[in-house]
Design a binder for these strands. Sequence first.
DNA 1: ATAAACTATGAAGTGAACTCTAGGGCAAGC
DNA 2: GCTTGCCCTAGAGTTCACTTCATAGTTTAT
Lengths: 137, 137
Amino acid sequence: MKIQELADKMGLTIHTIRFYEKEGLLDERHVRRESNNYRTYSEEAVARLKLVKKFQSIGCSLAELKEVLQDHDSNAQTNQQIIDWIRGKQEEIESKKKEYDRMLDTLDKMLSYRILLADDPQKAEELLKSWHADTSD
Amino acid sequence: MKIQELADKMGLTIHTIRFYEKEGLLDERHVRRESNNYRTYSEEAVARLKLVKKFQSIGCSLAELKEVLQDHDSNAQTNQQIIDWIRGKQEEIESKKKEYDRMLDTLDKMLSYRILLADDPQKAEELLKSWHADTSD
DNA sequence: ATAAACTATGAAGTGAACTCTAGGGCAAGC
DNA sequence: GCTTGCCCTAGAGTTCACTTCATAGTTTAT
């Protein structure tokens, strides 16, 4: 698979793919060179890029991913570190989910304020004040 | 309250607070000037910054926040837009929560692979291959 | 055989959100 | 009255994750 084909398949630009390679997110398993110096990508590249996108979507930096997305080429010392990282991420995600729930509460409040504002500004004001009273973060 | 005090209270730097002001996230309700030109912050500034942090933590840009974090100073036309924005955000958060659940699955898989790798590399290999077999994103 | 469409490189540019520096003004303690 | 530690502004620098540019080699279609 050549670079444009991979880019289309993944919804990335060829620039981004080359950038990821430069950043060390792709290696021999994913990309090789033909005699004309063109890059050829394996199916593993597709899987790798999917994983990159997935981790990225939950807020991992490329640097962080680079550390962790090593399957075969890792040695025993780093394995424990990666296990620790995974456990840390799991906790991080759990607490993010909780934060999201609190955010949904906040948005609900904002929504009822906004809706009330549309047809009864005075009552909306009172509502707003009643929230200012509580000292929640 | 002077800027350093607010910064300490909020866990921000004074630079960040001034930056937010420049970006239009704070107004007369939150910050005023003393005769010596020093900024003085009200309690509303604290509430506002908490809200900024909250929205920011779920991935809102400062530009987006600027649009939305207007309580009193907004007019009727924009009210409906803000209601729409809130509804959009709510959906966004729901789908993010689902993405997080899928992520937790992925991390679980990675974790069992890593743990197995520590004491039975061959079995770990098999596990890895069994996942490559499925074509989930 | 020549143009269009692909590939390559290295380096510069972009936008978001800070972060820091330079150069200066005020304020409190000794 | 001098040092120390806040405060001010304007603007430059940083990091991340791209994105674009300039230049050039390769492949494919007509």
